[in-house]
């Protein structure tokens, strides 16, 4: 699909929202030829309002955001868990790239951009400090800041789940499912667009 759309003039930039370079390298090996950049401080995630991965943002030829951050699966590997039918997003992407067709107007896109709370902005800054301290080898100090970040933004996947590896927590383990439960209790914030979500109103992980 990547090659097909590239022929039609689409550039794909894969942004790794990840501070673990080794882990990124391992994943990148599966996608040779893809332009991959590494967002260790999560600044692109912040600027584009990306609250979870995998997610896509569409930018047109004039540098305008024409589709906001939205869960987008490359295939249906996680369909049973996430209840997202990836073909819906793929069809929309083809319509945009091939024919310039967009299903969201500007006002809707602006409305769907995830505006941060003051707490989330603070959390993001704590996380940046954590990465710097972790790089220096001060793991304990890094964890203090990660704890502050999670306390400030308990429902942001990028903050909460994204800090699990640095805390030696399995991001697919018990703590993760605990988080998913809390996140759903809070009304599944940050998932308003949910392209291809099956059973509207349904919750993932049920």
């Amino acid at each position: 699909m990547q090659e097909e759309l590239a022929e039609q003039g689409l550039t794909i930039i894969a942004v790794a929202i990840d501070s673990d370079l080794e882990a990124v390298r391992e994943w990148a090996a599966h996608a040779p030829g893809l332009t991959i950049v590494i967002d260790r401080d999560y600044t692109v995630a912040e600027q584009y309002g990306i609250v979870n991965v995998p997610a896509t943002v569409w930018i047109d030829e004039n540098g305008r955001i024409v589709r906001p951050a939205d869960t987008a699966m490359a295939d249906d590997r996680f369909r049973a868990f996430a209840h997202v039918d990836s073909s819906v997003h793929h069809a929309q992407l083809r319509a945009w790239v091939n024919d310039g067709v967009l299903d969201l107007d500007e006002a809707t896109v602006a409305e769907l951009m995830e505006r941060p709370s003051p707490e989330l902005q603070q959390a993001r800054l704590h996380r940046r400090i954590a990465v710097e301290l972790h790089d220096r080898g001060d793991v304990e100090a890094a964890r203090e800041h990660l704890a502050s970040a999670v306390e400030l933004a308990p429902n942001d996947w990028v903050i909460r789940r994204g800090s699990m590896p640095m805390n030696d927590i399995d991001p697919f383990g018990e703590k993760f499912f605990e988080f998913v439960g809390e996140w759903m209790e809070a009304g599944s914030p940050g998932y308003r667009l949910a392209t291809g979500r099956e059973y509207p109103g349904d919750r993932p992980h049920e």
């Binding site: 930039i13 942004v15 790794a16 673990d20 990124v24 995998p54 896509t56 540098g63 951050a69």
Partner: peptide, 17 residues
């Protein structure tokens, strides 16, 4: 991002976690 001015760009956010 400016390296791809005048192109349609798909940002694909992903991670190892």
């Amino acid at each position: 991002l400016h390296d791809f001015d005048r192109h349609k760009v798909l940002l694909l956010a992903w991670s190892s976690w």
